[in-house]
Nucleic acid binder design. Structure first.
Lengths: 112, 112
DNA sequence: GAATCAATTTGATAGTTATCGAAATGTCGA
DNA sequence: TCGACATTTCGATAACTATCAAATTGATTC
């Protein structure tokens, strides 16, 4: 991918920069990655990698890759606890994105 | 790309299928495509291709490609009027997607 | 320390796609 | 009909990325 780092920042759903928004949408654009995100969300929360592994039809290497993508995009946090890693959603990110999308969709456009 | 057709359907923000959601997110994931969508939204509405052309640093061929992607994903309508084509947002689509994203982000997850 | 298990990194590969120039199609006015 | 203009299609190319097997790193237990 690319992207420098995750601005480990304030939790208020502020505004997303263009670059960050693009990174997030790209991260969401892969079906396996989206499914993983759904699993994390559904899990109450901290989801172990092994559980993630069981939920997706991909190899450990590929899962690791996707986790990194989601983390880099700032969509999840990864708590590394010894041998195990736990995944959680970063709250507010999806909501911020959603707000931006909805804003585009509000306007006096009579389709067609 | 892929995708069969645009279910020219009811305008209520119903539910998106997985496949459709993926198609939409993929369409949004390209910066030029997103910028085009923003232009359309900002334009009051029907945006001529030439205006789009002027707003983006890409060739006509590439613009045509992106328009088709957005249309195939069901994000825009294209009204073809003789020599000119006019682009409008399909209302409700972005909102439906946003609703799905927000739903993921609501839950008892104390990040970290 | 050795064995074991979890996760990551390292190649390598196959599939996808954004991009353009050039050619084609389609529309309109002279 | 011809030329000018808008848009699309074609063909080719470069960049990106999802994927895996194999090797590696790191932590835990014996």
């Amino acid at each position: 991918m690319s992207v420098v780092a995750i601005p480990e920042k304030s939790l208020q759903p502020t505004r997303l920069t263009r670059a960050r928004r693009t990174a997030i949408i790209k991260a969401l654009a892969d079906p396996h990655r989206f499914a993983l995100l759904e699993q994390i969300a559904k899990a109450g929360c901290p989801l172990g990698c092994s559980q993630a592994r069981a939920a997706l039809p991909i190899s450990a290497a590929t899962l690791s890759h996707h986790i990194k993508e989601l983390e880099t995009a700032g969509l999840i946090n990864v708590r590394r606890e010894g041998k195990f890693h736990y995944l959680t959603l970063r709250p507010g990110v999806l909501t911020a994105l959603a707000a931006g999308l909805t804003a585009l969709d509000t306007g006096p456009c009579a389709a067609h």
